[in-house]
Design a protein around this nucleic acid. Structure first.
Length: 572
RNA sequence: CGGGGCGUGGCGCAGUCCGGUAGCGCGCAUGGUUUGGGACCAUGAUGUCGGAGGUUCAAAUCCUCUCGCCCCGACCA
């Protein structure tokens, strides 16, 4: 491709609204342009990278036996109503009506759509297993789109859905995707951390996220180097104390006037002690029913865990009025010493507390010397708090550490949620109707692209891993005369004939501009034909990965380049 | 949704406090000199100053409303 016939608007300066490196570089290197908040245009060079990533995904999905579909981007409300998600999805799902008043979603995901087609097609156990996928645009009305293409309202996703006869089959499908995902990300040059995850609103059991460690990541991961345990914060378990935190002998229950002292911050100031001395009692409404969660004051309630324990679809904090009605005290004075009828869940660490301070369920009053077993009974105990840096690994007790990560892939076992609610059945060997079990597997395609840039760049620009690079070669000609131009053109032709995808910078600009753009766009091999070529036939070849440039005569040029590309591939 | 910030040629910005000819750098066009790390000279084009309304002889600048964009936070009693 000749640059003079191409569109590659590179920029010397950072766009003012880009804060993360991938967004800055992708814009400056002419891959994307912002259309509006959370919506991006892919320019030709960006499309090439996207297609490379999509190509890798296709190859690996095919290798794993998956079949490519293409679904409508609108999904009828009827299907969402069948699965029950029309009501549970929330405002992140775009909903639209056609001129006849028919309701649709601009699909944020496609479980319903796939389940609906396969329901029509699958009729026998012989049809299983099936793994159906597509690469398509998804829409989510994000609370806050940010970081360029990492979190956008409209994004490209590869989503796959497996249907198996039984759990054993699902396990095989799941493991197949696990392997495929490892291969995909490895080929994209991405180092990913697979972590255990919660299954979220999609419903299901087993789940693994593929994370790219990055400071701009929006998820927190808890990692253990001792045994390799890795989980995201929504899911991560952690070891609690083996016995009472404090050896103090239990004191008697006493009440203390605490006018206007409500928050943990207020309490630590009032009692001048650490937040860990308190037991926080927080009232939630779970699907309309009240529930109280009791956790140490220095711990954060993990609402995902809590929601799972309660088996709730919707979980939110109770209002001040509800709290007054339920506890008899205004917000800030709830505590476990009570005879409420609402369900109360205690975090696993509560039983080890000694002489805690809690709300007394009376305005402006707290109890001190509160002890579990004596002052209140722990009936319902569960892990409902979030793990933090330094907490002990649940499987080997090594202290864990935190990393932020960008989620590029997610695989999980869905179970029967959609096949049951939407009535999918096949006949088994005995001619009996059976409901297939599903798995679901997603990859954020454009987010993967951004993650690659996050992971592969330097001060000058992007450094594309070979397999996803938009071109193999950035070819620079520095010619002064017509004869020299002809000689350079000839090399360009030769490179193309040798099977390389070449971007030929034939612009009439000074060499510095070309070198800068070569670095910025991150194309793996830079080839320069200039004065040395005209003098002695030496062509310069340089890898964007680093190292000194070397020179080659035309006879060995193709070989040289192939060697660099191959070496880069091995190195990832 | 709460807090903060910003909208001025394609891009990055100054000018706004204190109303009075709309400016700078990059980019773009033409001609010339250059050509191995973002060259130089000359000439030139490009602006509803986000939008609407108001104040004023006069508004990018002051007032009111509105739209868009960016950043931080979002229920932890």
């Amino acid at each position: 491709m000749r640059m003079t016939r191409y569109i590659l608007p590179t920029m010397k300066e950072d766009p003012s609204d880009a804060v993360v490196v991938s967004h800055r570089l992708m814009t400056r290197a002419g891959l994307i342009r912002k259309e509006s908040a959370g919506m991006y245009v892919y320019l030709p060079l960006g499309v090439k990278v996207l297609l490379k990533i999509i190509g890798i995904i296709r190859e690996e999905m095919e290798r794993a036996g998956a079949l490519e579909f293409l679904m409508p981007e609108l999904t009828s409300a009827d299907l969402w109503k069948e699965s029950g998600r029309w009501n549970t999805m929330g405002p992140e799902m775009f909903r639209i009506k056609d001129r006849n008043g028919m309701e649709y979603s601009l699909a944020p995901t496609h479980e319903e759509a796939f389940t609906a087609v396969l329901r029509q097609i699958l009729s026998s156990y012989r049809d299983l297993p099936v793994n159906a996928y597509q690469i398509n645009t998804k829409f989510r009305d994000e609370v806050r789109p940010r970081y360029g293409v990492i979190r956008s309202k409209e994004f490209i996703m590869k989503d796959a859905y497996s249907f198996d006869l039984d759990e054993k089959g699902l396990e095989e499908s799941y493991q197949g995707m696990r392997t495929a995902y490892r291969r995909i990300f490895e080929r994209c040059g991405l180092e990913t951390i697979p972590v255990q995850a919660d299954t979220g609103s999609m419903g299901g059991s087993n789940s693994e996220e593929f994370m790219v460690a990055s400071d701009v990541g929006e998820e927190v991961l808890l990692l253990c180097d001792g045994c390799g345990y890795r989980a995201n914060r929504e899911k991560a378990a952690y070891g609690r104390g083996a016995g009472p935190r404090e050896k103090d002998a239990p004191e008697g229950l006493a009440s203390v006037d605490t006018p206007g002292v409500r928050t943990i911050d207020d309490l630590t100031a009032f009692f001048s002690c650490g937040a860990g001395r308190f037991l926080k009692s927080i009232i939630y409404m779970a699907d309309g029913k009240p529930a109280m969660a009791v956790v140490p004051g220095d711990r954060e309630i993990n609402e995902v865990k809590l929601k799972n324990i309660l088996g709730a679809v919707e979980l939110g904090l109770a209002t001040d009025e509800d709290i007054l009605k339920l506890t008899g005290a205004p917000t800030g004075f709830a505590g476990p010493v009570n005879d409420f009828k609402m369900r109360t869940i205690f975090d696993l660490s509560v039983k080890d507390t000694v002489n805690a301070i809690t709300g007394a369920n009376k305005k402006d009053l707290h109890y001190t010397g509160v002890n579990p077993g004596r002052d209140f009974i722990i009936k319902d105990e569960a892990d409902i708090t979030s793990a933090m840096e330094g907490d002990r690994c649940p499987s080997c007790s090594t202290p864990m550490y935190e990393r932020k990560g960008i989620e590029v892939g997610h695989i999980f076992k869905l179970g029967y949620k959609y096949t049951r609610s939407m009535g999918v059945t096949v006949l088994d060997r005995d001619g009996k109707e059976t409901v297939p079990i599903m798995g679901c597997y997603g990859i954020g395609v454009n987010r993967t692209m951004a993650a690659v840039v996050e992971q592969h760049n330097d001060a000058r620009g992007i450094i594309w891993p070979v397999e996803v690079a938009p071109f193999h070669i950035y070819f620079i000609g520095i010619a002064k005369t017509e004869a020299e131009t002809a000689a350079v053109d000839e090399i360009y032709g030769f490179l193309k004939e040798s099977g390389f995808d070449v971007l030929y910078d034939d612009r009439r600009v000074s060499p510095g501009v070309k070198f800068a753009d070569a670095d910025l766009t991150g194309i793996p091999v830079r080839v320069v034909a200039g004065k040395n070529y005209f003098a002695s036939g030496e062509i310069e070849v340089k890898s964007r990965m680093g190292g000194e440039p070397c020179t080659a005569k035309k006879e060995v040029l193709a070989e040289q380049i192939r060697a660099i590309l191959a070496a880069a591939k091995v190195k990832k």
